[in-house]
Structures are given as C-alpha cells and as structure tokens.
Design a protein around this nucleic acid. Structure first.
Lengths: 247, 247
DNA sequence: GTCTATATTCAGATAGAC
DNA sequence: GTCTATCTGAATATAGAC
C-alpha cells in the first residue's frame, strides 16, 4: 500500500477538483474546505502547494491557457504562412480562434467541457484579481487576432471590428457556460447536444463540443459580416416601430 | 428636520445601493454590511424589509423585470396586431426583444446602465436560487418570442432557432456586462461609447445605450440569418456560406 | 509533504429595547 | 421602523508536531 504518488498526485488532484467546483459554484461560493474535502486531501494542502485560494484559481487557468494561447498563435501562424503575405479570410480567423478553443472541449486531457464552461463563467466574474489575470494572459493573443481581422476586413472601421469581437466572444462564452436563462426555460442547451442524432447513450464531451462548434461558427461569421450600422447619430436604426412606446 | 421619508425611502435606498454593489462585486462578494453601510441604513434593515439577502437580490430584479416583461410583451402585441395574422420580420422581433431592454439603459428611472450591467453579469451566476428565479421571471416572455421566431423563420429548424437565441442573448449580455477580457486588453468597451462622436463631456447612459444598440442589432440580425450549418455529422463546418442566407 | 489544531476575521441572521 | 448587541457558523490562513 505504499502509495508513492505523494506530491505530484495531490497537486493535480486539487487542480482537477477545483476546476470542476469553481465551474459548478463560482469562485466565491467554492470554499477551500469543499475543494480539499472532495479531493480527499488535507485542508492545508492548498496553501502549501499554491499559497492561497486566489493563486489556486490562477493556476487552474494557467495550466490550460498555456496550451490554448500557444495553439491559437500557432494556428494563426500556419494560416499566415499559407497566405504568403495576403490577408486571411474571416472564416479562417474565426476557425483558428474559436475552433481551437472548442477543440479543448473535445479532449479530456485539456480539461474538456468542464474547463470550457469554467472559462465562460469566469470571464464575467467581477473580482479585480481575476480580470487583471485574464488581461495579462490574453493580451498577446487578442492583439494578434485583432490585427489579422483588421487586415481581413480593410473596409470595416476598426472600432466596429473590435465590437464584433466582443459580441462573438460573448455569444461563445454564454453558449459554453451554459447557465443562461434559456437553458432553464427551454430545457434546451448544451446537455441536449449529447443525445441529438443517434440514440447511443452518452456520447461524451467530444461530441458535444463538435456539435456546438458546427452551430456556433456560422452564427459568428454571419454576425461578423453583417452590414454596418448607420454611422448617423439619429435615434433608431431598424425602427419599423411606431414611436409610441415611451413608458 | 422631521424627515418623514422613514419607511419608503429606506427600502428604495437599499434597493438602489444593492443594485449598484451587486453589479460591481457580484452577489457573493457583496456583504449586507457593505450594502447597509453605503445606503446609510441599519444593518438589520435588510432583513426587516426583505427577509434575507437572497430575497433582496430577487427584489432588486423584480422591480425592474416587471417593467421589462410587460414592455416586451406589449411590443410583441403591437407588432402582431400590425401584421394582422401574418408572420413578423426577424428584425422586428429582435428590435422588440433587445431594443426594449437596451432602452432601459437610456432611462435612469428604469435602472439605467447599472441595471443592464447587473443583469448581464447575474445571468451567468451559478447559484441555484438565482437560476430558478430567472427561469420563472423569463418563462412567459421567452415562450412568446420563441413562437414569434418560429413563425418568422418557418424553414429554419426550431432547435437551430433556439440555439441562435442563446447566442444572441450571450452576445448582448456580454456586451452590457462589460467585464470581459477584451475591454481590459483593448481598452475599448462600453465606456468608450460615451465619448465617441462629439467631444462633449460625459454624454451619459442614454447615449451609451443607444450607441450600443446601433452596433449590436446588425450583428444579431446577421447571426440569426446566417446560413445553416451542415446537418451532417462529419468534422468540418468551415465551408463558406453555401446557400444565400434565407431568413 | 502531510496533518491537527487554532488564530482571526467576517458572514447572515435575530432578539429585544426604544 | 430603527437600532444595538449578539448568536452561530464558516471562511482563509498558518503554526508547529510528525
């Protein structure tokens, strides 16, 4: 019974459990007692291995984002090499950015859907230390992709492109976070993607992620390439509405 | 100095302050001591007027969502009356649903951007009581709008429509929540909308909300009407837009 | 590295005087 | 309705034995 997994195993198990519990409950509502209890390690182990609860959260993300950032940059590198100096197609850029992320959902060893959902939910956490952490982690990658989009869409004002990047990021985050009202109301959400086509039991995360990607990517591309809004500063833009309203 | 504002004023002041602090810090990280301190009321006042912290959060939302739900249903009623039995245009439906919400951001007395941001952030809170609360509050409205979209897009599979509703809701929530990475990295976000065109200082929430609406609506419409994904279960989805949209 | 025991702070809630 | 004082539990973090 001499379990020699001592050090390494404890660290990893804490990270795995924390990843899942932070996803399920959010950062604030997940106590260290809950984490260490579920991981079957001692309460003091978190502080020993990571230093603090904040540092634990950062480490949970760092081990995944390291891969994601590298892969996203590599995907863009490949595309730009292929294009030999020319601009990329928007669809290629989106595929490199969002497709790479969604591919993490297919792979258990990269965190699977658990990490994807955690990421989607944590991006809206207001805590200062979380926001500054993500800002640092994302800076380089976002910058590269922004420039690629600027080149791909030279006629679209840059501010507009950045805004649509916001919108796209939001659409994806919500979809993978899977907490939104619609899922509760309609009963239709991520879970359903598992048992959609064939009647085989429990297809697993990889199928879910792939099916989500197939639905999401056309939506994002459609939004990105939508006609530009009126540059004017008059009231509405689409109002077929009568003016009545006004509470 | 006989301030007769006794009861009513305290209640309202708690709600106003709680709305802002929940928005800034999130539910878990906002203590009742912080709320009552900022509202300059006694610590016990929250429990006296609302019963519990959970009930306080619910009341913060209920006083706003009551107006929103009523207005969203009324907007749809008007459109359907105009259409006299025929299907609506997708753009009309989106304008009624998202436009009505964004109009709250223009009006301080309806909560302004503070409430909008709170709503966007709270929709991703994992706490059970929050999710069931929203489910109940949204049920009726979501159902009506879903049906309107089904009629407006008879050729699009219903599951696809619900998914795109997810995506649209996410895009908007993130945009109004304004916590996401992009805003930190790019420095470009909600705040910038205030001082965009004219160099007049501090245009205020109403301008921000209107400008956001003008950028968001075309994006949502473009996403909603994007070509459908391959119904196939093969890997790729990147195919350029095949059929010409269809709405 | 792991564990027990504990220090310290703060949370939500309530009893009871005014 | 408001306020003080307090109950009870739980949080993060750490000291020190093993």
């Amino acid at each position: 019974m001499s379990e020699h997994r001592a050090n390494h195993d404890t660290r990893e198990r804490i990270l795995d459990v924390a990843e899942r519990l932070f996803m399920e409950n959010g950062y604030e509502a997940t106590s260290m007692r809950l984490i260490t209890g579920a991981a079957e390690v001692n309460l003091a182990a978190v502080n020993y291995h990571f230093g603090s609860k904040e540092a634990l959260l950062r480490e949970v993300f760092r081990r995944r984002l390291e891969w994601l950032n590298r892969e996203r940059l590599a995907a863009l590198d490949r595309l730009e090499q292929q294009a030999a100096g020319g601009p990329l197609k928007p669809s290629q850029i989106l595929e490199a950015f969002f497709g790479t992320l969604l591919r993490m959902g297919e792979d258990e060893s990269l965190g699977g859907m658990t990490f994807l959902r955690l990421l989607g939910r944590t991006l809206t956490e207001p805590a200062e230390f979380i926001r500054t952490f993500f800002a640092g982690e994302y800076e380089q990658v976002i910058d590269r992709y922004k420039l690629a989009l600027f080149r791909a869409l030279p006629d679209v004002p840059r501010a507009e492109i950045v805004w649509r990047l916001h919108f796209m990021l939001g659409a994806m985050s919500y979809a993978i976070a899977g907490t939104d009202v619609l899922q509760v109301v309609t009963g239709c959400g991520l879970r359903d993607l598992a048992g959609e086509g064939s009647a085989e039991g429990e297809p697993g995360d990889n199928v879910v992620a792939r099916r989500l990607a197939r639905r999401l990517m056309p939506f994002l591309l459609g939004g990105l390439r939508a006609p530009l809004p009126q540059p004017d500063d008059t009231s509405g833009q689409t109002q077929h509405r009568t003016p009545p309203a006004k509470r």
